[in-house]
Amino acid sequence: GSVVKEKKEKALIEVRPYVEYYNELKALVSKISSSVNDLEEAIVVLREEEKKASEPFKTDIRILLDFLES
């Protein structure tokens, strides 16, 4: 629970300088966080969101995924 939350919060802070739609990304992460149990599940849902998103938000999600998977 809290470790996953920390990882996601740290990821958002780390990617902030590189993303165009930070507030939207943060809102998406919050929405996903409330419906998943762990980081792996969150990553799966983020990948689905990435497929549906259009640029440049798609790239923002990709940047976040790269950080979460590192």
Results as ranks from 00 to 15, higher is better:
9 E>N: 05
17 P>V: 05
35 S>K: 11
56 P>T: 09
17 P>K: 08
46 L>A: 01
31 K>F: 11
26 K>S: 13
44 V>Y: 09
36 V>W: 07
21 Y>F: 13
22 Y>S: 03
46 L>W: 02
31 K>A: 12
63 I>E: 01
56 P>Y: 07
59 T>P: 04
34 S>Y: 06
34 S>Q: 14
1 G>P: 13
55 E>M: 12
63 I>W: 04
16 R>G: 07
60 D>Y: 04
63 I>F: 07
18 Y>R: 05
38 D>V: 05
26 K>T: 14
56 P>R: 08
54 S>W: 10
60 D>W: 03
5 K>Q: 14
69 E>N: 11
61 I>Y: 01
12 L>T: 01
11 A>M: 06
57 F>S: 01
28 L>D: 00
35 S>L: 10
11 A>Y: 09
58 K>I: 02
46 L>S: 00
22 Y>L: 03
22 Y>E: 00
68 L>V: 05
66 D>F: 14
60 D>M: 03
53 A>M: 05
23 N>D: 14
18 Y>V: 03
53 A>Y: 08
44 V>R: 10
30 S>G: 10
61 I>M: 03
18 Y>F: 10
40 E>I: 08
40 E>Y: 08
67 F>M: 05
13 I>G: 04
54 S>P: 06
15 V>M: 03
47 R>S: 08
26 K>N: 08
29 V>R: 00
46 L>H: 00
25 L>T: 00
28 L>P: 00
68 L>G: 00
23 N>F: 08
35 S>F: 14
21 Y>A: 08
70 S>K: 12
4 V>Q: 07
8 K>G: 15
63 I>A: 03
55 E>H: 10
64 L>K: 00
67 F>K: 11
48 E>N: 12
48 E>Q: 12
17 P>F: 05
46 L>N: 00
63 I>G: 02
32 I>R: 01
11 A>C: 15
45 V>L: 14
33 S>M: 12
14 E>W: 06
65 L>H: 01
9 E>S: 04
49 E>P: 00
4 V>F: 15
55 E>C: 11
31 K>E: 14
38 D>Y: 06
36 V>N: 05
24 E>K: 13
12 L>D: 04
19 V>A: 02
46 L>G: 01
25 L>I: 04
17 P>W: 05
18 Y>W: 04
69 E>S: 12
1 G>M: 06
9 E>G: 02
49 E>C: 07
64 L>C: 03
15 V>G: 01
39 L>P: 09
3 V>P: 11
3 V>N: 11
2 S>G: 09
45 V>Y: 13
4 V>S: 08
12 L>F: 04
42 A>D: 07
43 I>A: 05
30 S>R: 07
8 K>D: 13
32 I>M: 02
35 S>V: 13
62 R>I: 06
18 Y>E: 03
4 V>M: 14
44 V>A: 08
41 E>F: 04
43 I>D: 01
44 V>H: 11
60 D>K: 01
19 V>S: 01
6 E>F: 11
1 G>D: 13
8 K>Q: 15
36 V>D: 05
1 G>Y: 01
42 A>M: 15
39 L>Y: 08
38 D>S: 13
58 K>V: 04
22 Y>K: 02
41 E>Y: 04
2 S>C: 15
66 D>T: 13
3 V>H: 13
10 K>V: 14
21 Y>L: 13
7 K>N: 06
23 N>I: 11
49 E>K: 05
35 S>E: 12
8 K>R: 08
68 L>P: 00
25 L>K: 00
9 E>V: 03
62 R>K: 11
5 K>H: 13
37 N>P: 09
26 K>E: 15
44 V>C: 12
63 I>N: 01
50 E>P: 00
34 S>K: 07
36 V>R: 03
25 L>E: 00
56 P>Q: 06
8 K>H: 15
40 E>P: 08
28 L>K: 00
37 N>H: 09
19 V>R: 00
12 L>E: 03
16 R>V: 06
7 K>D: 15
39 L>F: 13
66 D>Q: 14
6 E>T: 08
36 V>Y: 05
6 E>N: 11
42 A>W: 13
44 V>S: 07
29 V>N: 01
8 K>M: 15
51 K>L: 11
67 F>L: 06
25 L>C: 03
63 I>C: 05
67 F>H: 14
32 I>T: 04
50 E>C: 14
23 N>G: 06
56 P>K: 11
63 I>Y: 07
65 L>D: 00
22 Y>M: 04
22 Y>H: 04
9 E>Y: 11
54 S>R: 08
59 T>F: 08
53 A>T: 10
40 E>R: 09
20 E>N: 13
42 A>S: 09
68 L>K: 00
69 E>P: 03
60 D>G: 04
50 E>I: 08
39 L>E: 14
43 I>P: 00
68 L>F: 07
9 E>K: 06
4 V>D: 15
21 Y>M: 14
44 V>K: 11
61 I>H: 00
17 P>D: 07
20 E>P: 01
24 E>A: 07
61 I>A: 00
42 A>L: 15
26 K>W: 05
52 K>L: 11
64 L>E: 00
37 N>M: 06
41 E>D: 06
61 I>W: 01
18 Y>N: 03
21 Y>P: 01
9 E>D: 14
25 L>H: 00
65 L>G: 07
65 L>Q: 01
64 L>W: 02
69 E>L: 08
70 S>Y: 11
1 G>K: 04
32 I>L: 04
52 K>F: 07
40 E>G: 08
44 V>N: 12
5 K>I: 11
47 R>Y: 12
17 P>Q: 06
67 F>R: 07
15 V>Y: 01
7 K>Q: 14
22 Y>R: 01
43 I>E: 03
21 Y>K: 12
22 Y>F: 13
8 K>V: 15
26 K>M: 06
28 L>S: 00
51 K>R: 13
5 K>F: 14
5 K>L: 14
4 V>Y: 13
33 S>N: 06
69 E>Q: 11
35 S>G: 09
19 V>T: 02
43 I>G: 03
30 S>E: 15
37 N>T: 10
32 I>Q: 02
3 V>C: 15
56 P>M: 06
50 E>L: 08
37 N>D: 09
55 E>I: 11
6 E>P: 06
39 L>H: 07
16 R>Y: 08
33 S>P: 05
27 A>D: 14
67 F>Y: 14
54 S>D: 11
54 S>L: 11
61 I>R: 00
11 A>S: 04
55 E>T: 06
23 N>S: 10
36 V>I: 07
48 E>Y: 13
34 S>P: 03
21 Y>C: 15
42 A>T: 14
66 D>E: 11
1 G>V: 14
56 P>L: 05
58 K>G: 05
66 D>L: 13
9 E>R: 04
14 E>A: 15
61 I>E: 00
12 L>A: 01
17 P>A: 06
47 R>D: 04
66 D>Y: 14
61 I>S: 00
62 R>L: 09
41 E>W: 03
47 R>G: 06
66 D>A: 13
60 D>Q: 02
70 S>T: 11
49 E>L: 03
1 G>N: 12
28 L>Q: 01
15 V>F: 02
52 K>Y: 07
29 V>T: 04
43 I>V: 10
69 E>T: 11
24 E>Q: 08
48 E>A: 10
46 L>C: 03
62 R>Q: 10
4 V>I: 12
14 E>M: 14
14 E>T: 06
55 E>V: 08
50 E>N: 07
13 I>R: 12
50 E>K: 12
51 K>C: 13
55 E>L: 13
22 Y>I: 03
13 I>L: 13
61 I>N: 00
38 D>T: 14
10 K>M: 13
58 K>Q: 07
